[in-house]
């Protein structure tokens, strides 16, 4: 397991886009150091540049200024050492579930047998061994996203990047996948960067929560979540983290009515996890 590698260092990162002839600064000077094995969540209103940040780390975009490095090597393009899971599963509809996971290994220096083994292992990891030969259109949204996670992990990358992967799922599936992802991340030991606009999700999953402010995208605050790896959604300390994240977001007029959001954030997990409340 790649416990040593997986350091992402970012300094002075600037990214601009041209939209309808006008220049838009998506990221205006981001400095961030991500520790190996860390679970970092990035939260912010839409348009704050959080997806852009993730795509830059993945190597899908190029920075206009600043330095990005992975274990000391500058990031110049995509690498098999950095897995990326998109908001949509983006499965190949003409490949079965197992073949879709194997897509990740297309350029991996492994033998055919080793690839088959890795695919089977990762399907087990996401609980989909029984669906290896199913077509993507036969899967539910949650299952499809699990396949995408297995594909993102199958190379055993030391950095896993996730771009609002549970955004389109219903609440129950979402809560279950959040727990699965944390468990998987702890087993795999990969440095994880998880982008979301959901404050609950960011607080529940992250070792640290990076709060981004928009126009231009920059880090407003980094909230340290000093909580054990095994988490309880009803933990009152989690509410404190949410409170801090919301306050940081609230300084941004683009994020609507923090008091109301905080209220909803407090109630939702409790109704989601009654067992946890009873304990």
């Amino acid at each position: 397991m790649p416990l040593q590698g997986g350091v992402i260092a970012i300094s002075g990162l600037v990214k601009r886009f041209r939209v309808d002839g006008a220049e838009l600064t998506a990221l205006g000077g981001v400095d961030l150091w991500i520790a190996p094995g860390e679970f970092l969540t990035v939260v912010g209103a839409s348009g704050c540049g959080k997806s852009t940040l993730l795509r830059l780390i993945a190597g899908l975009e190029h920075a206009d200024a600043g330095v990005l490095s992975h274990d000391g090597a500058p990031i110049a393009g995509p690498s098999l050492a950095r897995g990326l899971v998109f908001q949509e599963p983006r499965l190949f509809p003409w490949l079965t579930v197992a073949q879709n996971v194997a897509v990740g290994l297309e350029n991996a220096p492994l033998s055919r047998a080793e690839k088959a083994l890795a695919v089977a292992e990762h399907l087990t990891l996401v609980g989909l061994s029984a669906f290896a030969r199913a077509w993507p259109h036969q899967l539910s949204g949650g299952m499809a996203q699990r396949v995408a996670i297995a594909r993102g992990l199958v190379n055993r990358p030391d950095v896993l990047l996730l771009d609002e992967p549970f955004g389109a799922l219903d609440m129950l599936t979402r809560a279950r996948l959040q727990d699965e992802l944390r468990a998987i991340q702890q087993r795999a030991g990969a440095t994880t960067v998880f982008v979301t606009h959901d404050v609950d999700e960011a607080a529940y999953l992250g070792d640290r929560v990076v709060v981004l402010a928009p126009r231009p995208g920059r880090i407003r605050e980094i909230v340290d979540v000093k909580l054990p790896a095994r988490r309880d959604r009803a933990d009152p300390r989690l509410a404190g983290v949410r409170e801090r994240v919301l306050r940081a977001l609230g300084e941004d007029p683009g994020y609507p009515r923090p008091a109301l959001v905080a209220d909803a954030a407090w109630r939702r997990p409790a109704t989601l996890a009654p067992a946890a409340v009873l304990q």
């Binding site: 899908l60 995509p78 690498s79 983006r90 297309e106 350029n107």
Partner: peptide
């Protein structure tokens, strides 16, 4: 979207054609 997935996994031109464009 799938071409981007291909980019993430460092598909070569031939792999792009065989795996994405053709199917």
């Amino acid at each position: 979207d799938l071409l981007e997935v291909g980019a993430v996994f460092r598909f070569t031109r031939a792999q792009r054609i065989r795996r994405i464009f053709l199917p």
